[in-house]
Amino acid sequence: MSAFRRFFSCKENNLRKTLKIAGQTCLLWVIYYAGTWIVNYFHIPLPGSVLGIIILFVLLSMGVIKEQWLSAAVNPLLKHLAFFFIPIAVELMQWGDLFIKKGHLLFLPLVVSTLVALLATGGVVQLLTKNNENSEE
């Protein structure tokens, strides 16, 4: 009997959790949709999702939206973010020839620019924060 009850209360919690995640996802979707709509309407050359990030950050900072209203949905969505790129990357099956013919030419720009990114960001920030630390002392 108690196992039965436990099963049901567990079910109820799961249901509540699912509804919570669904509701929070709807909120994220509304913000995403607003971002996309504004970008399209005003012909702004910016991804709608980026404007969505900015809108959400501003709303969180203003206290209009509370962190707890979103975390149940955001955490699993970001954890499995890679899933969404699988269907997009499958399209590469149409580009097979291109990669076989040009693949070797891709290495140099990809590798060099990655090293440049590491060095430029890391070097500049280390230089700037070192100066800050020195002036504070």
Partner: peptide, 17 residues
Amino acid sequence: MTFLLGPATVGLALPLY
């Protein structure tokens, strides 16, 4: 399958916040 990608991307604002 990519229907939720937009909302998930917007969620990147949360760790930033």
